[in-house]
Design a binder for these strands. Structure first.
Length: 436
RNA sequence: GUGGGUGUAGCUCAGGUGGUUAGAGCGCCAGUCUGUGGAACUGGAAGUCGUGGGUUCAAGUCCCAUCUCCCACCCCA
C-alpha cells in the first residue's frame, strides 16, 4: 500500500464545514442587504497582483508579511494583504468609467504571513465599504450609519462607534512642536484602550517631556458627555478650524436620526495607519470589549496617489468577518443554522428508485428542498441520518403505499405520521408543517 | 519574527520513577428487530502514541530537531 498523505492544512489556513460556511453566508447576506439599501455596489479584484502594485515603489514589505513569489513567467507577484490597496489601483485604472461619487463594497479573502493566534489567521475575509470622490460630512455620516445599521441588522444591541478627527490631535501636537512625531504618537495613543494610560504615558515620555505627555493624555480623555469633550478640545485649540465644523455636522446627523446611543466622541481614537486624514472611528461591542474593534476606518484625502495624479478623497470602513463571527458566536447572536433540507424521501424498496426521484422532482417544484436517501437501509438508520442533519420531514413510500397510490408524511420533530395522503396533499401538508 | 505552553482512536481523556500484543467513555458500523428511529443487549472496525532523528537490551514515557494549535509581544482584521 502507498503511504497515506496526512490531510493537513497550512498554518493559519482553515477549512470551513457546512455549519460554519452557512453561518458565514448568512452574515454576508445580512450585510450585503444593508449595503444595497444604501446604494453600495459590489466589486472584486484579483487575489494576485504585481508586487509593485501592492508594495508601492519603495517595497516596504517589512510590516505586512506579504506572500510574495515569482510565477512561471518570472513575474514578481504577491497575494493581496488588504482590500484597500487593490481598490486604489482599481480606481486609478477605471477613473474614466466610474461615476463619482462611487460607493462600493468588497467582500473577499486576504492573506498575511503573520504569526497566528486565536481569531488571527493567515487567510481571512475582509469586508470593506467606501465612498470615494467626495469629502463631505454627508459621506462621513453615511459610512457611520451603514455601520450602525449593519450591527443592528446582525442582532447586536449593545455596541458603540467611537469616533474622532485626526486634525484635532494634529493641531494640538503642532502647538507643542511635536508634529514631526505625529505618526509615532498616534500609534501610541491608539493603544490606550489596550495597555492603559500609565503605559501610554511611559511610551510618550520617550518622545516628549513628561508634562507634555500629561497634557496629551488630558486632551484625549473622554469627558462626561460629548459636548464637554468637544468644549475641552475647543479650548485647547483654535475653535474655528475646519475639523470642528465637520464634527459638528456629523453630530447633527446623528442626533437628527436619533442614533446618539450608538456613537461616542472619543479623541483617543486615532488609528494606527498613517493615510487617514480626517474622521476616524472604531466599533466596540459593549459585552465583549476585550476583542477590540470589530469595524473601523476613516477618511483619507488621497486614496490612489501611488497610481494616478488624480486626487481621490474618500471615507471607508473595514470589518474582519472571522473576528465578527467569533464575536457573534460568543454573544450567542448567531442562531444555529439548519444544514439539512426540508424533507427526506426514505428508501424502502429498490424497485421504487425511479419513483423516489420523480417525487423528489415534484416536491422541489413546489419549493421544498428535498433529499432522497440514496440506498435501501434499515429505517432506523435512515431516521437517524435525517435527525442528525436536522431534516424536519420524511416521506415514506413503500410497497403498501405504492399499491394504494398514496404516501405517508412524517414530522420527525413530533414523530407524528400523516397517512394515506395523495402526493399533492402531502406537499400541502408539508408546506404547512414547515411554516409552524 | 521573539518568548512560553501544547500534541495519545472521529471526539473527550487515562496511560507513577522507560519494560512484553496502548486503554476507557462517547461516536461509528453490524446484529437481536423482512416497513416506522432517540432504550437495552451482543459483536465489530478504528491509533505511523504530531513528524523525524538520537540515547537504551528496551521509549507513548528521556534528549534534540521540526510541525500544529494555544498564550504574550509585535502588528492589526
Amino acid at each position: 500500500m502507498d503511504p497515506i498523505i496526512e490531510p493537513k492544512v497550512l498554518r493559519g489556513f482553515r477549512d470551513s464545514l457546512p455549519r460554519t460556511e452557512l453561518l458565514r453566508k448568512k452574515i454576508r447576506n445580512t450585510l450585503e442587504r444593508e449595503f444595497t439599501l444604501f446604494g453600495f455596489v459590489p466589486i472584486d479584484t484579483p487575489a494576485l497582483e504585481y508586487s509593485e502594485i501592492l508594495l508601492g515603489k519603495g517595497g516596504g514589505e517589512t510590516d505586512k508579511q506579504i506572500y510574495r513569489f515569482l510565477d512561471h513567467g518570472k513575474r514578481d507577484i504577491a497575494l493581496r494583504f488588504d482590500l484597500t490597496v487593490p481598490f486604489a489601483r482599481f480606481m486609478a485604472r477605471y477613473s474614466g468609467e466610474i461615476i463619482l461619487p462611487f460607493k462600493r463594497y468588497h467582500i473577499a479573502k486576504v492573506w498575511r504571513g503573520e504569526n497566528t493566534q486565536r481569531g488571527r489567521y493567515r487567510e481571512f475575509t475582509q469586508i470593506d465599504f467606501d465612498i470615494v470622490g467626495v469629502d463631505s460630512a454627508s459621506a462621513d455620516f453615511e459610512i457611520l450609519m451603514v455601520m450602525q445599521r449593519s450591527f443592528t441588522a446582525l442582532g447586536v444591541k449593545k455596541f458603540k462607534i467611537h469616533f474622532s478627527h485626526r486634525e484635532l490631535l494634529k493641531e494640538f501636537l503642532k502647538n507643542y512642536g511635536l508634529e514631526m512625531n505625529y505618526v509615532s504618537i498616534l500609534r501610541i495613543i491608539d493603544k490606550t484602550k489596550k495597555i492603559g494610560k500609565a503605559k501610554v504615558k511611559d511610551l510618550l515620555t520617550e518622545l516628549c517631556a513628561a508634562s507634555q505627555a500629561d497634557d496629551i493624555l488630558e486632551f484625549i480623555k473622554i469627558e462626561k458627555n460629548d459636548s464637554l469633550t468637544l468644549n475641552k478640545m475647543a479650548d485647547a485649540l483654535d475653535p474655528d478650524i475646519e475639523a470642528f465644523r465637520r464634527i459638528d455636522e456629523i453630530f447633527k446627523c446623528i442626533e437628527e436620526c436619533g442614533l446618539s446611543e450608538y456613537f461616542s466622541f472619543d479623541p483617543s481614537i486615532t488609528r494606527g495607519l498613517d493615510y487617514y486624514t480626517g474622521l476616524v472611528y472604531e466599533t466596540f461591542l459593549m459585552d465583549l470589549p476585550e476583542i477590540g474593534s470589530v469595524c473601523s476606518g476613516g477618511r483619507y484625502n488621497n486614496l490612489a496617489s501611488l497610481y494616478t495624479r488624480e486626487k481621490l478623497p474618500g471615507v471607508g470602513s473595514s470589518i474582519g468577518l472571522d473576528r465578527l463571527i467569533s464575536a457573534l458566536e460568543e454573544l450567542k447572536l448567531s442562531d444555529p443554522v439548519e444544514e439539512g433540507s426540508n424533507l427526506i424521501i426514505l428508501f424502502l424498496d429498490d424497485s421504487l428508485l425511479a419513483a423516489y426521484q420523480k417525487m423528489a422532482a415534484q416536491l422541489r417544484e413546489a419549493g421544498l428542498s428535498v433529499d432522497v436517501f440514496p440506498q435501501k437501509k434499515k429505517l432506523a438508520v435512515q431516521f437517524n441520518y435525517a435527525e442528525k442533519r436536522t431534516i424536519p420531514l420524511a416521506l415514506i413510500y413503500g410497497e403498501t403505499e405504492h399499491k394504494k397510490g398514496v404516501v405517508t408524511l412524517k414530522d420527525l420533530r413530533t414523530r407524528k405520521s400523516y397517512e394515506n395522503l395523495k402526493l399533492e396533499n402531502a406537499i400541502n401538508t408539508a408546506l404547512e408543517l414547515l411554516r409552524s
